[in-house]
Design a protein around this nucleic acid. Structure first.
Length: 376
RNA sequence: GUGGGUAUGGCGCAGUUGGUUAGCGCGCCAGAUUGUGGCUCUGGAGGUCCAGGGUUCAAGUCCCUGUACCCACC
């Protein structure tokens, strides 16, 4: 159940209640593709840094260890010892990211596994079956994520197919949820809006899929080649077309600035690999901009990544030490950077929620952005 | 002590029968990365080619002397 607590302009402060607990939005979901946050981050760590939703991937878990295995072990929550909400991405993004390894047809997509090369077929029904076996809180519809720019002709063709796939997803998940041995009989389904950078296609698609009365709606196919301005333009066109009484999820986005802008345009859910991937590469987010801890200037810097930060890394370790760990290839270096980044994102979302509640979101956003643009 | 070998950026090396601004890998210094293959990619800095002398229009490359290190033998 989704309940808007208050609004500040188009920015929404809401609560989304699921069988695995209530999510306070806007929220940033922490990406753990293979049921693990990369960088040796445990579920205990996630609890310590205020994670509300963990995100895993259908395709990756199907390939390894296999969704049937996860089901036999009681589902993803039990498997990874995480009792809060989990969202599973459908495998649709892999249609895009593993483009060189796949073939698309009406029935679905054939991949060559990135692990051992074997052929894997995934269509709407397969994706739903896998996600049902995983028992995630929220299942994502199986879609085709197309790169920007793509021709109008291809986008129209692809979006029409994504809509047909969505109808099949809804039907299949309803069937699976009703089965007696289903891991999570109340699994939710979010549909995904596509349409590339064509506003009219986006809007028409949004109007079509809202008729399906899903549990939430995502905007997909953004941050895949287009400029930030185009992304914001599309959000301004599409978000008003989605049901007000349902959460909106902007998939795969993004930088702190992207999130601040998207919240202002009515988005509730986010996810992005940036805090984890950048953390593994020694890039850390702060209120004064992004730092690259590999830089030589931190060699003798005894300050924490960010002064005043309460994350597990900043409470105890210096930039100089973390830089050394990174240079030495020690896993702890990555881990500390990832923990800091996820804490930074989660904390920013807390600030965002508070600012909306207090009806000072525009000022907060302006101040936050100005701080992050400061020269180092 | 005798014989043989090696000496080129921080490290490991390539440099054709002498021929433009001496290359490569790693490292170093920076930058990219948006529903994740701990990857990958893109730039940049850095060398009086062991020292001294000689041959030549031209020497990292050929000759002489010295030095350092390596191997074998005494």
């Amino acid at each position: 159940m989704y309940k808007i607590i208050t609004m500040d302009g188009s920015a929404k402060r809401a609560a989304f209640t699921t069988v695995h607990g209530t999510v306070q939005t806007p929220v940033f979901m922490n990406v753990g593709t293979a049921a693990a946050i990369k960088g040796a981050v445990s579920t205990e760590d996630l609890e310590a840094i205020g994670t509300q939703v963990e995100l895993s991937n259908t395709y990756h878990l199907h390939v390894r260890p296999g969704d049937e295995t996860v089901k036999r072990l009681g589902g993803l929550h039990r498997f990874m010892s995480w009792n809060k909400p989990i969202l599973t991405d459908s495998g649709g993004f892999q249609v895009f990211s593993l483009a060189s390894l796949r073939k698309i047809k009406e029935e679905g997509v054939t991949f060559n596994s990135h692990v051992d090369g074997r052929r894997i077929f995934m269509g709407p029904e397969e994706s739903m079956r896998i996600q049902s076996n995983l028992g995630s809180t929220i299942a994502m519809a199986f879609d085709e994520c197309i790169p920007n720019p793509s021709s109008r002709e291809y986008v129209e063709h692809s979006v029409a197919r994504t809509t047909r796939w969505l109808e099949r997803c809804k039907k299949e998940l309803a069937r699976l949820n009703a089965l007696p041995d289903t891991v999570n009989p109340r699994q939710l389904l979010f549909g995904i809006n596509q349409g590339g950078t064509y506003e009219d296609i986006r809007i028409a698609h949004a109007r079509q899929i809202r008729e399906l009365d899903l549990d939430g709606y995502a905007v997909g196919g953004l941050a895949v080649g287009e400029s930030h301005e185009e992304m914001y333009r599309i959000l301004e066109a599409v978000v008003p077309e989605l049901p007000k009484e349902k959460p909106v999820y902007l998939m795969g986005v993004g930088t702190p600035a992207n999130i601040l802008e998207a919240v202002e345009r009515g988005v509730d859910f986010f996810d992005c690999v940036y805090p984890t991937r950048n953390g593994r590469h020694g890039h850390v987010y702060t209120n004064h901009g992004k730092r690259n801890l590999f830089n030589a200037k931190y060699q003798l810097d005894e300050r924490p990544i960010e002064e005043g930060c309460r994350c597990p890394a900043c409470r105890r370790y210096s930039r100089a030490y973390i830089r050394h760990l990174l240079k030495a290839g020690e896993m702890l270096g990555m881990r500390l950077c990832v923990l800091h980044n996820l804490y930074f994102y989660n904390t920013m979302m807390t600030e965002i929620r508070q600012a909306i509640e207090e009806h000072r979101y525009p000022e907060y956003k302006k101040q936050k952005l100005a701080g992050m643009e400061q020269a180092q």
